[in-house]
């Protein structure tokens, strides 16, 4: 069963087409990777899925329901969680409170009903030791982890990760991949935008290439990466 269906999604900023007739079906439980050069429209695509942006044309369906015009907050209730490319923590709240606010509002529950779950997500994302620190003072790895932890706190069915491995050292990256894998194993559908290919390919089952707002190819990661046009566009390799 498809959890997410995009049909002919189009979005322009002035003359610039950032999404140009994108169609995509994501089955429930899949881990899909998205690659493409800078400015290809990857983060825009996320904003269109989460409702932070509305498309000019086309439809977005989540679990079979048309959510094209639904505001971001409602889509969070429906089960779409996201991390931002540039971490956007609530700086003056503690790490634990960042998760609490997401869990209490995203699931519409009381603090008592979610606080243990938030503590467990902190364990899982290795943030427990800094639980009571203000989120504004975290290191880059911790901020990236917090992005994911906060999205998980809303108990999403679909998790969108935007360049969560970017800027991390190899060791940090490996630790983060383990966490993402554990989330995926739990049955959460994942769409992951990433430039760090080895990280991406160690988790995803399917890969989509985006360029100038268009889908260039989608399929098995190995096969996609072998394609000549993908290598030219994405890796800039002369042939």
């Amino acid at each position: 069963m498809a959890i997410l269906e995009l049909e002919n999604i189009t979005k322009s900023f002035g003359q610039l087409k950032v999404a140009d007739g994108i169609s995509l079906v994501v089955p429930k439980g899949q881990a899909l990777g998205i690659i493409g050069p800078n400015g290809a429209g990857k983060s825009t695509l996320f904003n269109l899925i989460t409702g932070n942006l509305l498309p000019d044309a086309g439809t977005v369906k989540f679990e079979g329901r048309d959510v094209t015009r639904m505001p971001a907050m409602q889509r969070c209730f429906a089960g779409i969680g996201r991390s931002f490319q540039i971490p956007q923590p609530f700086d003056n709240l503690s790490v634990f409170e960042n998760l609490l606010v997401a869990a209490m509002h995203g699931r519409n529950m009381d603090q008592r009903a979610v606080q243990d779950d938030c503590a467990m997500i902190l364990e899982q994302t290795e943030l427990l030791a800094v639980a009571n620190r203000p989120a504004g003072g975290l290191s880059l790895l911790q901020r990236k982890r917090l992005e994911m932890a906060r999205a998980l706190a809303t108990d999403p069915k679909l998790l969108l990760l935007d360049e969560i491995a970017g800027g991390l050292t190899d060791a940090e990256c490996v630790a983060l991949i383990d966490t993402i894998r554990a989330v995926h194993v739990r049955g959460v559908t994942i769409i992951w935008i990433e430039h760090v290919l080895h990280a991406l390919n160690s988790v995803v089952e399917r890969l989509l290439v985006l360029d100038f707002g268009k889908v260039i190819g989608v399929g098995q990661p190995d096969e996609i990466m072998k394609r000549q046009d993908v290598r030219e566009i994405y890796l800039g390799i002369e042939v």
Partner: peptide
């Protein structure tokens, strides 16, 4: 209260608050 926590979240980052289900 729950609403107070949401208020702090909106002050710190309205876009992120919306994506975690807060009615900013």
């Amino acid at each position: 209260s729950k609403r107070g926590l949401a208020l702090s979240a909106v002050r710190d980052n309205p876009e992120a608050a919306k994506s975690v289900g807060v009615d900013a």
